[in-house]
Every structure is written in structure tokens, then in C-alpha cells.
Amino acid sequence: MKALVSVKRVIDYNVRIQVKPDGSGVVVDGVKHSVNPFDEIAMEEAVRLKEKGKLTEIIAVTVGGAKCEETLRTALAFGADRAVHVKVDEEIQPLTAAQALAAVFKKEGAELFFLGKQAIDDDAAQTGQMVAALLDLPQATFASKVEIDGGKATVTREVDAGLETLEFDLPGIITTDLRLNEPRYLKLPDIMKAKKKPIEVVGLGDLGVTAAAGLKSVKTANPPKRSKGVMVKTVDELVTALKAKGLI
């Protein structure tokens, strides 16, 4: 059984985001980028399933510009066997990304697709669900536990009320939550090996995808700033202040 794992290049989660003064976006040039943390978790889960003998091949896929090759190399170092780079130069939005990812899934004849539950840049949290819709396949989002057995997936999901369990018939789509696993540290030999693994480059046209009409970005702004408050020295001082404001 083949699995597809999508990996997205995003600004590293430790970076303090700077909004451009002209409101045209955030500063991305010269800023550290990494693999979306949720996608590392997706990669790790696939690799563990392969180690358990549940998968025969893992294919990493990304949709993006030339620099996304680094992202694919990271996925290959984790243990993907090969990669597909859907190369786009223009900005794409989730539905278009989903169309491209769905096309790759079909073309590869994969049975499982792991994606992150959200990308930490755009925070849209919708790509996996859209892929599932386009392929008319099952989806289990926000997964914190995955079991694959007998042509079925049993997935525990982190939901507002607690933990929900769903079962679906393969093939299907799973999006990963933080507590699904802890991704391994990459070792140098794996990083070296990844350099030799094949990456196939395709365009949206090759996949028969035309970019869907999108949302237009009007402007990007800084959020309202919270002003720094006061430091109190004692619990008494704190209680007095909160009582004075009618907060307790």
C-alpha cells in the first residue's frame, strides 16, 4: 500500500512575523523557513507505518516554488522513498493546492494521504478536507492516534469536546494533530541519502489543474497591540486591583 504525504514550506514557527509597511504581506525574504510542523508529524506517522510493514512506499509531495525542493529533501530524509514537486510560481490558495494534491494522489494510486491539520502560516486548516471532497473519499481530521488494519483506518481525533473515534474504509485522508507522534531527529546519513532520492517535477497543467478563482488579498496589517500592563509586588496588590475593576 502506497501513502502520500504532503509537506509545505512555511516560515519557521520561532520567527517573529513582520508585516510589510505597505500592507502587501509579511516579510518572507531572508527569513528562516522550515517544514510545517504538522507535516513533519504526518511524515513521521507514515514512516512508522512503513516500519511496521503496513506501507510499501511513501511519496512526499509539495506544491510551490523552486525553494520547496529543500522541504522535499527534508521529507526524503525522514524516509519518503521519492517525491513529487508540483511547481508553481504564482500564489496558490487551498482549493488549488487541494486540486493538485488530489490529482497526484489519483495518479500514484495511493491509498492513504497524510496532511497536516493546518499550515502555521496561513492557518486555513482546510486543504486535507478539500482533497477528500474532491476525491469523494473519507476524511479523519485532527488525528492523535491512527491504526491501520484489514483495509480500515481507525482514527482518534482531537475535538472540542474531547476525543472522537472514527473508522473508515481505505483509501482515505488523514490530517495530523500535534500529539499524534513526536517526529524523530534527522541524522546526517539520512540527510545525505535523501540527496540521491528522485524528485519528479510537474506543473499544474500536467495534472490537468487550472487554478481556482481565489480570494483577493486586500491588505495585511498588524494586529492591535496589547499595551504592557503593570507589575504588582504582592498577591494583596493584585487582589485589590482586580476587585477595584470589578473583575473578581
Binding site: 482549493l95 482546510q126 486543504t127 478536507q129 478539500m130 482533497v131 481530521t141
Partner: peptide, 16 residues
């Protein structure tokens, strides 16, 4: 969970 699935079926980007 369900709304992006609706958006994709209707062929529109979701505003999250």
C-alpha cells in the same frame, strides 16, 4: 472539519 468539504464541492475557496 465539514465546511472545507462543502467549499471544495461548491468549487470555492473557504474564508477561514
Amino acid at each position: 472539519d465539514f465546511l472545507p468539504r462543502v467549499a471544495a464541492k461548491l468549487g470555492v475557496q473557504q474564508v477561514s
